[in-house]
Design a binder for these strands. Structure first.
Lengths: 166, 166
DNA sequence: GCTGAAATCGCCTAACG
DNA sequence: CGTTAGGCGATTTCAGC
């Protein structure tokens, strides 16, 4: 599943769909410089091969009443694979946890959480997260404001890199 | 811009488009139980009012050759608003920085970064990020593996909440 | 005001070269 | 990959609740 299976048109398609996932196929085809049918075939292939794993509308979290965003750094007592997996499954089941990444270093996981208000989050934090089996420590930081939230990958960096190795 | 301007159908639309942003309007209309024209009007209104800020394809970062994901905790020497803004603007200009959130507590910002390999990231880290004006400290953590990456907002929590307050 | 029905227009998507 | 062409979805118009 290397990048090398993708040509410049494929990468352009990915870049365009990353920016606007609802673009019509004819508009996409126009932008990447081919006609619509082959463009659609490429998109289907990119989806099939896992280069595109889904399309999502980005919703306004605050406008929907989720006033609180929190990053939580979680340390576990046991880092045995079974225990790591168990914690990951817990995270997948908690709706307030939107992202969970396993890290190297002192902290084992970083979680991005949302909540309607602080008290809802506090309840989750004390009754669910810190109370969960195998959780040793949780350090939380409130998001004061968001400064950047770009999707996925910087395709210009990718292109530069490919140009250099060519 | 309160949630109260949205009825149940609007919220269902948002939930569906968050899950599948490329769904056709007729399919969306079928799922939320109204006919296509009013459904399309609602979607347009939701976009117009900022409840939907965009649509994005989720691309496979690893498959595209970005092997490295890193969270960086950044502390600044000055937290004056002008200096905060300046740093945020820097982040927006760095393509390897995909997300930047201002936090409370000891660390001022958390950054989510991607890079093709570790050495590319190290170069960015030492020559750009830590070298940047006003940056006092940077602590980085490599992402070992991703366990959950859900988009946006848990709509079931929202519905529960609204049901309770009704 | 909304919704829904009908009609037009444009896009999607197969088949073929 | 492009062209053609048929069917379906998107989008406007208009009537009804």
């Amino acid at each position: 599943m290397a990048t090398h299976k993708l040509d410049e048109i494929d990468r352009k398609i990915l870049a365009e769909l990353q920016e606007d996932g609802r673009m019509t196929n004819v508009e996409l085809a126009r932008r990447v410089g081919i006609s619509a049918p082959p463009c659609l075939r490429r998109v289907r292939a990119l989806e099939e091969d896992g280069y595109i794993s889904g399309y999502h509308a980005r919703v306004n979290i605050r406008a929907l009443g989720f006033e609180v965003q929190v990053f939580a750094m979680v340390g576990l007592t046991s880092q045995a694979e079974a225990d790591l997996s168990r914690f990951e499954n817990r995270c997948r089941a908690w709706p307030l946890v939107r992202e969970c990444h396993m890290l190297n270093g002192e902290v084992d996981f970083i979680l991005k959480c949302v909540a309607p208000d602080l008290s809802t989050f506090q309840t989750f934090l004390t009754e669910e997260l810190t109370a969960a089996e195998n959780v040793a420590s949780v350090k939380t930081s409130l998001v004061i404001r968001g400064a950047k939230d770009a999707p996925g990958v910087p395709f210009d960096v990718l292109e530069e890199r490919l140009a250099r190795s060519a």
